[in-house]
């Protein structure tokens, strides 16, 4: 029987091996929660309030993707589409790149070589993003081994769209999502899309509770329910549980033992903010969360000390 068009019928058993590939984030605990890392296909959304660490995580992924597959990378470069106001975070990119190069110096990584595989482009409006996805990005993907495209952020592009223009906005959002999915299928590239969050008021379930209880304010990713169906994975970053780091009691003795050892520990009173990553939506893992820390070198796991004493 003739198959319609170009459609491929895959047995589920044949897809097992292909669906095993993951892009590691560089934090062991985050990878564990994600079932090994981010998917190497489709759209992964990283949502969170301002300064939750969305861009930091995305920048780290830009370097992680360059690792060989045996180390959890995808053996390819990255494209960073900058849509937020202000300059693209090039300085921070090099900072994280330097730390990353130190970590992988045995493999011959230098910050310059790493940054050579990163392409940065500026996108001003949603229509321009659509154009880029249709024409410029495929051209780049065809000539360079790019395996990751980061869009920072999708919400910024739609901020200028007024609420009364909803049908047009919705059509454009769906068209952008469809274009990303098609590119991901055709060129084997993963999309990481950053998104902002809005507060929303949850009405309690039962009528009785609605009269007395104060409605809980919860954080939701921007762009509404329709967009939430377009993404494959949604991660929610928050720093709601940020607490100052209280030094463990052993600290004075450790300080006497040697200055070098004490320098490894944060200074007493220094703030180490614990942040939380939650898997809200995923086709392959359940909803779980983990804690992480952002320091000068990028995103890393929270140490036991920080989790316990924080």
């Amino acid at each position: 029987m003739e198959q319609p068009g170009e459609l491929r019928f895959d047995r589920a058993s044949d897809l097992l091996e292909r669906h095993r590939t993951r892009l590691r984030t560089g934090c062991a605990r985050m990878d564990e929660v994600l079932g090994g890392g981010l998917l190497d296909r489709g759209i992964t959304e990283i949502a969170g309030e301002a300064s939750a660490g969305k861009t930091q995580l995305a920048l780290q992924l830009i370097f992680q993707v360059q690792l060989p597959r045996s180390e959890g990378g995808l053996q390819g470069g990255a494209l960073f589409l900058h849509a937020e106001g202000g300059e693209a975070p090039v300085k921070r990119l090099r900072q994280i790149g330097s730390a990353f190069a130190r970590r992988w110096s045995s493999a011959g990584a230098t910050v310059d070589r790493l940054c050579d595989n990163v392409f940065i482009d500026r996108i001003e409006t949603a229509d321009l993003l659509m154009n880029a996805l249709r024409y410029r990005v495929p051209t780049l993907l065809a000539t360079r081994a790019v395996r990751l495209v980061v869009i920072d952020s999708i919400a910024a592009l739609f901020r200028t769209h007024l609420d009364d223009d909803l049908p047009r906005r919705s059509e454009l959002l769906h068209a952008i999502a469809a274009e990303m999915q098609a590119l991901s299928d055709r060129m084997h590239v993963a999309f990481v899309v950053l998104n902002q969050i809005t507060d929303s008021v949850d009405t309690p379930d039962t009528p009785d509770a609605a009269c007395t209880a104060v409605p809980a304010v919860s954080k939701r990713a921007a762009l509404g329910l329709a967009w939430s169906h377009c993404v494959n994975t949604r991660l929610l970053l928050s720093r709601a549980q940020a607490r100052p780091f209280a030094p463990p009691r052993l600290q004075p003795q450790l300080a006497q033992l040697g200055g070098a050892l004490a320098e490894q520990q944060p200074r007493p009173g220094a703030r180490v903010e614990l942040r939380t990553m939650r898997v809200v939506l995923s086709p392959c893992v359940e909803q779980r969360s983990c804690e992480y820390v952002i320091d000068a070198d990028g995103v890393r796991d929270a140490t036991d000390d920080e989790t316990a004493h924080g």
């Binding site: 019928f9 097992l16 669906h19 079932g35 489709g42 169906h229 392959c284």
Partner: peptide, 16 residues
Amino acid sequence: ALFVDTGANFCARAFL
């Protein structure tokens, strides 16, 4: 069974 996947949401690992 035939799974028609429009949103790339089929994960073979999850199905296993």
